[in-house]
Simulated scan of single mutants.
Amino acid sequence: MEFGHIRRSEHLPARIAAQIARDITEGRMRPGEKLPTEHFLAKALGVSRSVVREAIAQLRNEGLVETRQGVGAFVTEPHARPIRIEQDDLANRQSFRDLFQLRVPLEIEAAGLAALHHTADDLARIDDALTSMSGAEKWTAEGIVADLAFHRAVAAATGNEYFSVFLGFIAERISLAIDAARAVAVLEEIVEVTIEEHIVVRDAIASRDPKRAREAMRMHILGAARRLDLTLEAY
Score class of each variant (00 low, 15 high):
131 T>C: 05
165 V>Q: 10
196 E>W: 02
141 A>E: 11
171 A>T: 04
23 D>E: 13
80 A>E: 13
229 D>G: 06
218 R>K: 14
163 F>M: 03
158 T>P: 08
83 I>V: 09
20 I>Y: 01
1 M>S: 13
204 A>C: 06
46 G>Y: 00
78 P>G: 08
119 T>K: 03
211 K>N: 07
140 T>A: 05
138 K>G: 03
106 L>W: 14
174 I>F: 03
77 E>L: 12
222 L>R: 04
105 P>M: 05
125 R>Q: 10
198 H>M: 02
61 N>P: 02
112 G>C: 13
106 L>T: 12
6 I>T: 06
94 Q>S: 12
85 I>Y: 03
182 R>I: 04
1 M>W: 05
42 A>E: 03
83 I>G: 07
201 V>S: 07
34 K>W: 02
14 A>V: 09
58 Q>W: 08
54 E>A: 12
194 T>W: 05
51 V>A: 07
93 R>I: 12
155 A>M: 04
74 F>S: 05
95 S>C: 06
180 A>W: 01
94 Q>M: 09
30 R>Y: 01
184 V>H: 15
63 G>F: 08
63 G>K: 13
90 L>E: 02
122 D>W: 01
146 A>S: 15
10 E>V: 05
67 T>Y: 00
210 P>K: 12
162 Y>D: 07
11 H>Q: 14
23 D>H: 11
170 I>H: 05
111 A>P: 13
210 P>N: 09
17 A>T: 06
164 S>K: 11
144 I>P: 06
132 S>V: 05
116 L>V: 07
73 A>W: 00
231 T>K: 13
114 A>W: 01
191 V>N: 10
184 V>G: 09
75 V>H: 09
20 I>P: 04
146 A>G: 04
191 V>I: 15
182 R>Q: 13
1 M>C: 04
155 A>N: 09
163 F>L: 02
